[in-house]
Design a binder for these strands. Sequence first.
DNA 1: TATTGTTATACTCTATAACTATA
DNA 2: TATAGTTATAGAGTATAACAATA
Lengths: 140, 140
Amino acid sequence: MENFQVTIRELVRCYQAFEQLSNRHIRAMDLTPAQFDIIATLGNTQGMSCRELGEKTLITKGTLTGVLDRLETRGIINRETISEDRRSFRVYLSPKGEVLFENTFTRHLEYIRPFFSDLPEQKLVEMTNTFAELRSKFQD
Amino acid sequence: MENFQVTIRELVRCYQAFEQLSNRHIRAMDLTPAQFDIIATLGNTQGMSCRELGEKTLITKGTLTGVLDRLETRGIINRETISEDRRSFRVYLSPKGEVLFENTFTRHLEYIRPFFSDLPEQKLVEMTNTFAELRSKFQD
DNA sequence: TATTGTTATACTCTATAACTATA
DNA sequence: TATAGTTATAGAGTATAACAATA
């Protein structure tokens, strides 16, 4: 077994362990992971186009339409035509969506924070750098 | 923004970047990520129960039945009753599945390997340890 | 011609709970 | 009573391609 395989396996395990506890909490707040992703991405912004939202969340455009439809039905987001480009929309959080964002995002951070409580700042910085370094291999 | 949030973001980005290139290749080999996960887990083993397979792949039992059904239909896996416990099955790769495993697993490694080519062994070990350390926070 | 977003297709995965058979 | 696995339910995400409107 080559070394890189072990690294991949630990990357996957680490992510899955995080995802499992994170997603459980997200679903307990009556959102799907994809919906939470969209809401977290739109929070504290002026909104953005579907294209930009898709790039940030890695949700492909066909899928995105469906996810946004469900969020719009629930009154969480709005779509607004923009004057500059009539092919495109600005997708943004409704007032109800803003409240939901503040609420769920804060609660989610509170839920996650304790898992990191005994990691010193320096360690967190090192981890961050490690992850960024590996990612660059996949993207450059 | 707290430090741990940045660490999470980079973990997620790193994983997603890997997943994206990995899944693209898996789908190009006519498998879904879940199916590849099952095949890779069963490869080089004598097979295992659904329970064990579910624990290793993190696929819940209800979902697992469906995934296994599709693999069985394609003649890739078999289910065999075992004498010790008549509630349970041994799930294992068929001869055709073995060939598929050797083939796809090898090709997949070849596809992934180059992305790690300029990382020295020592660096890989450090990365592995970092992922394992963070995972332990989520699971202990 | 290229791009933005929607629609259509066909599947696959997801969580959850109820259920059957066995332990 | 507990466990292994299936079935049922209801939804949600996935890739892909074709499409309309606009640039």
